[in-house]
Every structure is written in structure tokens, then in C-alpha cells.
Design a protein around this nucleic acid. Structure first.
Lengths: 148, 148
DNA sequence: CCTGCTGGTGAGACTAAGTATCAATTGCTA
DNA sequence: TAGCAATTGATACTTAGTCTCACCAGCAGG
């Protein structure tokens, strides 16, 4: 998702189009997959843009609320975020090697979960699925290295 | 799971049976469901038992490694832990009201996830599912309160 | 029962995420 | 272009979690 689009969404929800927000969105849009707040700060630092810590978190929360971002615990157990198309329900395949994130086109839980929850009379409000593994690119690279 | 059993597991794996570990396990065993480190510390404080921060985290990590505990992000987005029967694969229904945790008897993801991942040539190593909602007890209580 | 080796502990400093406060600033609208 | 409300940044704070290092205590072997 491009920075432009995210800005549009902000404006559409009545939020102001400020300098720090633009800077943040640009940096976020450049990140291919999962990122931590630390990485974000570093990116900003490299671009010589100063944005206060508080603003970073405020903006991240905003984006999460709007469904543009999602909080995801990375493979290394570190908290971070992932850009998501829009507010729809979805899950991710997270590569433990490169941190890249692929979106799952459908929810592999929905059906069976509904049944199980009904059995136990548990009212499901939401759920959260994170899948860890190795993506095809990293698998290939690995087998190349082993050939040497 | 009782504190005794957890101690047995520790010993069976060659770990020593120390004072702080016993104290921690007892407090953990008393917790019905999800708990944060903060709650744990408070419980220890109330019982007038002093255990160093480092030891708490060491022990928690140990228990996670042994599969007796699991790290779970609570409904309020706070990190915490949950006691799990043993090292097997399982998931949880987490009640956002009372924090109680029910174990799911089967994994509602396994089948469909395997298919989806195969399609995209992603090698799944592990996955993590957390389900949030309201448990039957809290639902009942709620409807009682509304009747008034 | 005692002793020593080694695993375990606690204090404390450190990293990092995330929140709260509040005065100063800046988008936007009229 | 003036003004108001939304936004910002500095700063201090909370909590999770790690690391180090000197000290301590389980437990095995005598």
C-alpha cells in the first residue's frame, strides 16, 4: 500500500495532513513487511527527519485503529507492525529468516472455530493468527548455499 | 495443572528444586488463566515472598521452554502467560471480561492452513492462534445485570 | 554428615515498547 | 489571514525483558 493511499484514508476520517504523519507514512510504505518501532526510528534518523517518540506511537495506534496496520509479534518474539491492505480480516505468513510478510487470502480458522466455540458456548469477538515459517525465496537461497 | 506436577517436570529435566522456583510455581498454579508478570509480582508481594525480577523471568522462560507455559497476548494487548497442560499443540479461548482461558481441544487451523501454505510454497514451522471473546459465565452475568 | 562443584539467585543497570502530561505549534476553516 | 482545535515534542514514567556478576545453596560423592 502506498503512502498516498494511507494519507487519503487519514483525511477521509477527518484527520489532519501533518508533516510528521506524512514522513512516517512514507517510511512505513517503504518497509516490505514486518517492522518494529525501532526500525522505524532508524529509518527516520537516516532520512534526517525528527519525529517525537510520542507521535510515532500515536500515529501507529491511529493506523491500527483505521485498519491500515496490524500489531504482530514477529518471529523473534518482538512486537512490531505490518501494513495490511485495508480493514478486512486476514492473517499473515511471517518468514523467520527475512521478516517478509505474506497475506493469506482467506481465513483458515473461521469455519472450524465457529463450531468449536459454539460447542463450548464461547462468544467469539475476534481472533488472531500468526504463522511462522520460511518463505520460498529464503528456501531457495538456503538450498543454493548448501550446494556450495 | 498443580504446582507439584510442574515441579516434577522441572526435576525430570534435571533442574534443581529451589525455593524461589517453588514459590513461583505455587503462585502460578493459583492463577486461573492468563496472567501478566506484574500480577505475578503482586501475588508474591502479598505472600511476603521476595523473588528477584531476573529469577521471575528466568523461571517463566524455563517453563515456556518446557511447554508448561505459553506466552499469550491478553485481550488488552498486554503480554502475559497461560498455563498449558503439557507440551502439545493447542490454542486458547481468552475471555476479555474475566481473563479466564479455556483450552481448545483441537487445532481449528491445521488442515486448511497446510493447504494454503502449500499453494504458496511457504514452509510452515509453527503458528499461533489466540481467540478473544466472552465466556459463558460472563455472558450469563451480563444478562443478569441487564435484567435489573 | 560434610564439602565442593555448579547451577541458581538477587541487585542493579540497561534496552525497548508504550503511555501520560502539558505547553507550544500548526493545519485548516471561516 | 486570524483563530481555534487538533497535533506535536519534550520529558518523565511504567512495564517487559535482558545482562552481568558476585554470592549462595542443592545435591552428589566421599
Amino acid at each position: 500500500m502506498r503512502a498516498e493511499e494511507m494519507l487519503q484514508t487519514l483525511v477521509a476520517h477527518g484527520y489532519r495532513l501533518t508533516e510528521p504523519r506524512q514522513a512516517l507514512l512514507e517510511v512505513i510504505a517503504c518497509r516490505p513487511g514486518w517492522f518494529s518501532v525501532r526500525e522505524l526510528s532508524e529509518d527516520l534518523g537516516q532520512k534526517k527527519i525528527r519525529v517525537g517518540r510520542a507521535t510515532i506511537f500515536r500515529t501507529l495506534n491511529l493506523l491500527v485503529d483505521l485498519g491500515l496496520l496490524e500489531r504482530v509479534r514477529g518471529a523473534n518474539e518482538v512486537e512490531g507492525y505490518v501494513v495490511t491492505g485495508a480493514g478486512e480480516h486476514h492473517h499473515h505468513l511471517i518468514c523467520s529468516r527475512c521478516g517478509r510478510v505474506e497475506e493469506l487470502p482467506e481465513c483458515p480458522v473461521a469455519e472450524r472455530l465457529a463450531e468449536l466455540a459454539a460447542e463450548r458456548q464461547f462468544q467469539v469477538v475476534s481472533h488472531n493468527l500468526e504463522v511462522y515459517g520460511v518463505c520460498i525465496q529464503c528456501l531457495r537461497q538456503e538450498s543454493l548455499e548448501q550446494e556450495k
